[in-house]
């Protein structure tokens, strides 16, 4: 009974780790705002604190043009985001939450009716390809800040990989809008926090349960170094260096695997690393843990033997399955 409980704990911990990898992709965000005239667009933006989604050429023209009263001035600044919110542009997808955040932050910090108000307008290639052609946008995401005064020379904002996007975008907007205290801080990711807490909790529980029998020998320095080497090589073998050098996207539109030989994404390499590590731990359990169980506790040993054997078989099968999902023509399989 106690053994079964421990097995269940193990399985639960493994499942949690897997779930964390599978589910941690960014949620896709796409809004469908009703849009008509400039006034309505602005009104909506003021009301909701969301960026303006431009859905038609006419909207863009009316939003962008100068007011008739004074031809040298527009009533507001415009921050245009040329983007493509499909899986073909993972960078755009990962940028978008920050844009929404900036819009809502601007909404709360700017006094209503101020002439220097800034509005963020998002142009999705799927909606208005004609504008992209007219402006001559060649790469997305492209971000241009248009002040309200002439000359209408845009200030481009380029993503700089040296600092997080919300920091550099916050600094940029602070400079352009003149709001002295404008900064962007991302909302806490409760999902990830929860996952971390759960995984941490699971490890603590496992540590407490297995402390004396299993973990004490691990804590000796030699095996600890060995584990370090093991995880280092698993990290390397699961292609994480490729991710670092090529700056791989985290995941492409929520799907775990980017098919093909030459590309990969972070989520899939994480999954592979977890699979490899689990298989390696199963082998280690068989080679190191089982012999350390005293010969008296026969059923305990048999339980662990079966557990490790099944774990080995399942993880290796999964690695074949992932590889087959990647390379469609690959014929080999183990269990599934």
């Amino acid at each position: 009974m106690k053994l079964l409980l421990r097995l269940a704990l193990y399985v639960a911990a493994v499942l949690w780790c897997l779930l964390g990898v599978v589910l941690a992709g960014p949620p896709g965000v796409k809004e469908q705002p009703p849009a008509l005239s400039t006034a309505e667009l602005l009104g909506l933006a003021r009301q909701t604190g969301k960026p303006i989604f431009i859905k038609a050429d006419a909207e863009f023209n009316s939003l962008f043009q100068l007011t008739s009263a004074s031809s040298s001035e527009r009533a507001y600044d415009l921050f245009l985001i040329f983007t493509s919110l499909t899986e073909r542009c993972p960078n755009c997808m990962s940028l978008h939450p920050t844009i929404e955040l900036a819009a809502s932050k601007l909404h709360t910090e700017q006094a209503a009716g101020d002439r220097k108000n800034t509005f963020i307008a998002v142009l999705d290639y799927a909606d208005v390809p004609s504008i992209f052609r007219r402006v001559g946008v060649q790469t997305v995401p492209m971000m241009l800040y248009f002040g309200h005064k002439k000359p209408l020379e845009p200030v481009p904002f380029t993503v700089d990989s040296s600092s997080p996007i919300y920091v550099s975008l916050g600094n940029f907007l602070r400079e352009q809008t003149g709001l002295a205290h404008f900064t962007l801080t991302p909302p806490p990711n409760y999902f990830r926090l929860g996952m971390t807490a759960l995984v941490g909790l699971a490890s603590v529980v496992l540590t407490v349960v297995f402390w004396r029998k299993f973990l004490t020998p691990v804590l000796r320095i030699g095996p600890l170094l060995g584990l370090g080497a093991l995880f280092f090589s698993v990290y390397m073998l699961s292609g994480h260096m490729w991710n670092r050098i090529r700056k791989a996207p985290r995941s492409v539109a929520g799907s775990l695997i980017s098919p093909g030989f030459q590309t990969q994404n972070v989520a899939e390499t994480n999954a592979v690393a977890v699979i490899y590590a689990l298989a390696a731990l199963a082998l280690l359990g068989l080679t190191v843990h089982i012999p350390s169980i005293p010969s008296g506790s026969f059923y305990k040993r048999r339980g662990f033997v079966l557990f490790y054997a099944v774990l080995l078989l399942v993880t290796t099968s999964v690695s074949f399955a992932i590889f087959r999902a990647k390379i469609g023509t690959y014929p080999l399989r183990l269990l599934f």
């Binding site: 080497a229 698993v234 690695s319």
Partner: peptide, 17 residues
């Protein structure tokens, strides 16, 4: 390397022992 990606790290660990 196929599943040597799994055997190899285990071998590394055992070397430390």
């Amino acid at each position: 390397l196929n599943l040597m990606t799994v055997f190899f790290p285990v071998g590394l660990f055992l070397c430390f022992r």
